[in-house]
């Protein structure tokens, strides 16, 4: 085995980023083995049965009925020790961030996270608040990689065949120190961002809570919903169910009109599939402009009131 892809269970089905991780692993070249962990391991494995994989390993155990960093890192460590893959690949998700560093430290294998693309020089990730890119390389024989959302396209997964094999792990009660309660959702609100045709999205450039109405006013004029970036939600200016990005919703509207959103990667992963992107930002270097169709360099507080007037006439 050259590459091991560790899959993630997203409420019974394969996490989208796990599919993209398989596509990325196949692109790296060599034989690819996938690993499914937990009570849904069998169904996760069967979702991949028609793709070109050397093997799909499934691990089930009483102590793995719910996710824990201790349990999952121990399983992945045992699989790596047994199969000696050169490269271990995962999607860059909240769950892999939670347990893969433990594997890295247990086995002394570097973990290069949040990769957005491959280049001749190494693995590319964003640094310095997405203002610059960096190429990163491993100086070890083995390495762990996590791929950011949309680094690879899951439609490019190579089809073929694979076999599903059970892998036995040794786990005892003392190796899982945490107890987890059932996951829950908080007030979801009655806004369906993910199916909205048009979105006006508000970011830190709105400056003050008193200015947030500008986004709602503009949205009303063009018939859009209002979404927001994380800093605005964290400040309590906009409800959390309106948040777009890795800790909020994934959206792909016909128009994404952003007002003072800088475009940090955590936000961008949730909206880069939008058909048309208009962005207003004071900073000509704002990363949001890189993926915008229309980049307006200017002050939201000056432009938006005039735009509302112009659209009303």
């Amino acid at each position: 085995m050259n590459i091991l892809v560790v899959l993630e269970d997203n409420q019974g089905s394969l996490h989208r980023l796990s599919r993209e991780a398989v596509a990325g692993a196949q692109k790296l070249g060599g034989s690819v083995t996938a690993l499914a962990i937990g009570k849904n391991a069998g169904s996760l494995a069967s979702e991949l049965s028609s793709y070109e994989l050397e093997e799909i390993l499934t691990v089930e155990h009483d102590l793995l009925s719910s996710y824990s960093a201790d349990g999952y890192s121990e399983v992945v460590t045992q699989v790596i020790q047994s199969k000696s893959p050169k490269t271990i690949v995962v999607g860059h998700t909240y769950q892999t961030r939670d347990f893969m560093p433990r594997v890295s430290a247990k086995l002394d294998i570097p973990f290069i996270p949040d990769i957005i693309s491959l280049s001749d020089e190494g693995f590319v990730k964003q640094v310095l608040n997405a203002k610059l890119n960096a190429s990163v390389s491993s100086e070890s024989d083995q390495m762990i990689l996590s791929f950011q959302s949309a680094a690879f396209n899951d439609e490019e997964m190579i089809t073929g065949s694979s076999t599903i094999t059970t892998f036995d792990v040794e786990l005892d009660v003392s190796s899982v120190r945490s107890t987890s309660e059932e996951p829950f959702q908080e007030a979801a609100g009655d806004v369906d961002l993910e199916n909205a045709e048009l979105l006006v999205s508000v970011g830190r450039g709105i400056e003050k809570e008193e200015n947030v109405h500008l986004a709602f006013d503009l949205a009303e004029v063009i018939g859009a919903e209002v979404s927001a970036s994380r800093p605005v939600v964290d400040s309590g200016w906009v409800d959390s169910f309106r948040q777009v990005g890795s800790s909020g919703h994934n959206v792909a509207p016909k128009l994404y009109f952003s007002l003072g959103v800088s475009g940090a990667i955590q936000h961008v992963v949730g909206m880069k599939g939008s058909k048309n992107i208009i962005a207003i930002n004071k900073d000509p270097e704002a990363p949001i402009f890189e993926l915008s169709d229309y980049a307006i360099v200017g002050d939201v507080l000056e432009i938006v009131p005039k735009l509302i007037e112009a659209l009303k006439n």
């Binding site: 294998i109 190494g122 640094v127 960096a134 990163v136 070890s140």
Partner: peptide, 8 residues
């Protein structure tokens, strides 16, 4: 074990 080689 790993390093940033280049920024751009």
């Amino acid at each position: 074990s790993q390093s940033i080689d280049k920024v751009f």
